[in-house]
Design a protein around this nucleic acid. Structure first.
Lengths: 203, 203
DNA sequence: CGCCCGACTGACTGGTCAGTCAACGGATCG
DNA sequence: CGATCCGTTGACTGACCAGTCAGTCGGGCG
């Protein structure tokens, strides 16, 4: 859809996208109007359709933009030979948690409006969502190969539990209260990795 | 709303509720019509409103009915002195996983349509959802007191990761393919408890 | 200067759908 | 047998809203 390439028009488009994120986060995708987005962006209703194909298309773009960044980080973490398995997992968790720290609205929209909508957006983007699981599973699988992690838990299973843990932590922040300090977020990453790798059993 | 107490009217009400679950699961709450529910139940449109206050009210009831069962199981597991911490967690996980095995539609609706809808139903039922986290946290906390689990992971945090793990497993079943055999579900519970308690580190 | 083109506007349309309501019928009771 | 009650019906209404479109505005270019 992106028509022009003028600096100004790129900015306008961005402004609409950012406004959409705020509106989706506050009212939810299904309970907001396209006119809300236009108002929030300080732009005429019709302009939204100048830059985007549809309301759905805006959400798709918000999701993909963020998710692709995450997939890159997973890829990078998986390929970095210098890192231990724990550090790789921590790197991924840190990216997600810091994404929330910097752009809580974006992460709320990604998780709440896309990731869990089994019948609409979730189904549509399921393959992309799975890419993240696959990447995490590869990290686990390799570490099992070197004996760095135990071999009797299926990597795909471990990946799902790990990702589920992060997502639930973010969900509790979204629904309840977010950690105000960056240190609290870092602490969450450490505890998550420690829980998943070290386990809850006494040391 | 439940008006009558005739056996027949109780059954009718139940039929509508069951039909709603099927329709919500197939089309999603936001993309189905009340007339779909009526059709699925083989009942006139208006009758739905004889038994229920609103479309939202139907979803509320589907959620609460199931969630309250789960809260009872958590309560029961937490109070059962004969059980180890691992067995308590396994008991809760088994209930959830078996709920999915027996009523996949209900669980899909509960998780996808309620639990993650931060702006609508999720927000409304947040306190009830948290009750589950609190119950799980109490199981962990007690076990930490007896030295059965390590004391340096906050119980509330462990509870969220544990629940998140289960939810993500169910989500992958909902979006992808469900385990066809009961044995596969039992296996998932064992692996989940083993991952969370034992950890991924080599034994 | 005058033309063109793309950014921008917002009233309007077409369709959808939750919830209402007036009326029906059959069971039960006095 | 008539009265009453209530489960049942489905056409209808009012509101809402995504997406369209005819047209304005302004800047750059020939």
């Amino acid at each position: 859809m992106a028509p022009r390439t003028t600096a100004a028009s790129v900015e306008k488009r961005r402004a609409i996208l950012d406004a959409a994120v705020r509106v989706f986060a506050e009212r939810g995708f299904n309970h907001c109007r396209v006119s809300d987005i236009a108002d929030e962006a300080g732009v005429a209703y019709g302009l939204v359709y100048h830059y985007f194909k549809s309301k759905d298309g805006i959400l798709d773009e918000v999701f993909l933009e963020r998710w692709n960044l995450m997939l890159e980080v997973i890829e990078e973490a998986a390929g970095d030979e210098a890192l231990s398995a724990r550090d790789r997992l921590a790197k991924v968790a840190t990216f997600i948690v810091e994404s929330y720290g910097r752009h809580p609205d974006v992460m709320q929209v990604v998780i709440v409006e896309v990731t869990r909508q089994a019948n609409t957006f979730g189904r549509k983007h399921w393959a992309t969502i799975q890419d993240a699981h696959t990447g995490l599973a590869r990290i686990v699988e390799r570490a099992q190969g070197t004996g760095e992690l135990r071999g009797d838990i299926p990597p795909a299973f471990a990946a799902i539990v790990f990702y589920g843990g992060i997502e639930q932590i973010l969900t509790s922040w979204i629904f309840g209260t977010s950690p105000s300090e960056p240190a609290d977020r870092r602490e969450a990453v450490v505890q998550l990795v420690e829980t998943i790798c070290g386990g809850l059993d006494p040391r």
